[in-house]
């Protein structure tokens, strides 16, 4: 079985020292080892942003796609070969901004894949503009007088869009995040792992210390039941003195590919493509 170190490459991460992406990378490699998959059985699709480089540092099949478009690429790969285990790694700009449409539809479909969002509440690679998760009123490079909109709430959005595993991790707690990712991968259906990721360089509000003071784990709350959608909504709306992390909601529902009849016997990619006979179809044109 592959170990955490087997998922390393010889590339050295180019993130700023102290960036939350390091914690995510550590957690990810650990989770990949825990998952039991080997590098060639995985497919990691990443977007464009600081986070996107992650596939350079993970030894597994990868597809560094374009900004906001990871999910449809991942969907195509998945529908062609549902034996590959698929993860998408996106930024908050990538996943909740430019790629928002795909996100909602992927959840509706309950595609069997795991989406990890490096949520640093900013567009960092482009030097610190507002993102859809930036707090209202926060000045950024593109909103020097403060953001006017209210932020997107990825968790309530996921709850109402049909995701079947909805969680939030913290880059400053890799062991906890590792478990969330491993569980997400084991879950059959669309799994969201929104990760609170400090950006040391541009986000001076949502720092490591900011989160450390506030985060608490849902699994430590007595009586919290991730099968209770209503309770999940309440926790998903909580953001202030206390910020919940952990598994908010889990549900079992048939996945998209479960319901595609033509994928029942084998993945599409295993079907022979040569010598297809169309004679029978031609009769309808007579």
């Amino acid at each position: 079985m592959a170990e955490s170190k087997d998922f390393r490459t010889d590339k050295k991460p180019v993130w700023c020292p102290g960036c939350g992406n390091f914690g995510i990378l550590t957690a990810l490699r650990g989770a990949l080892a825990d998952s039991g998959y080997e590098p060639h059985q995985l497919m990691i699709v990443s977007g464009i942003g600081c986070h996107g480089a992650v596939i350079q540092y993970v030894n597994a099949n990868g597809f560094h796609s374009i900004h906001g478009r990871t999910l449809p690429v991942a969907t195509g790969i998945h529908l062609a070969n549902h034996e590959l285990c698929i993860l998408t790694m996106v930024g908050d700009g990538d996943g909740y901004g430019i790629g928002m449409g795909h996100f909602i539809h992927a959840m509706r479909r309950n595609l069997d894949m795991t989406q990890i969002v490096h949520n640093n509440k900013l567009y960092s690679l482009t030097t610190g503009q507002t993102s859809p998760t930036t707090d209202k009123g926060r000045p950024t490079k593109s909103t020097p007088f403060g953001v006017i909109e209210i932020p997107v709430n990825p968790l309530t959005l996921a709850l109402s869009s049909g995701a079947t595993y909805i969680s939030r991790g913290f880059a400053g707690d890799p062991p906890h995040l590792r478990k969330l990712i491993a569980d997400a991968m084991a879950h059959k259906g669309f799994a969201l792992v929104d990760v609170l990721q400090p950006c040391i360089t541009f986000n001076h509000a949502n720092t490591n210390a900011f989160y450390k003071e506030r985060v608490y784990k849902l699994e430590d709350e007595t009586g919290y039941d991730p099968g209770d959608r209503q309770a999940a909504y309440e926790r998903a709306l909580e953001w202030g003195e206390r910020i919940p992390i952990g598994l908010f909601y889990r549900e079992s529902r048939p996945t998209y590919e479960d319901e595609v009849v033509t994928l029942k016997d084998m993945p599409l990619v295993k079907r022979p493509i040569k010598g297809v006979d169309i004679t029978k179809t031609l009769e309808q044109f007579l």
Binding site: A74, G76, A80, N81, L268
Partner: peptide, 13 residues
Amino acid sequence: LMAIGASHAGVRA
């Protein structure tokens, strides 16, 4: 993009 993904995975898309 789905067609690109599917083709990447090895089918004709």
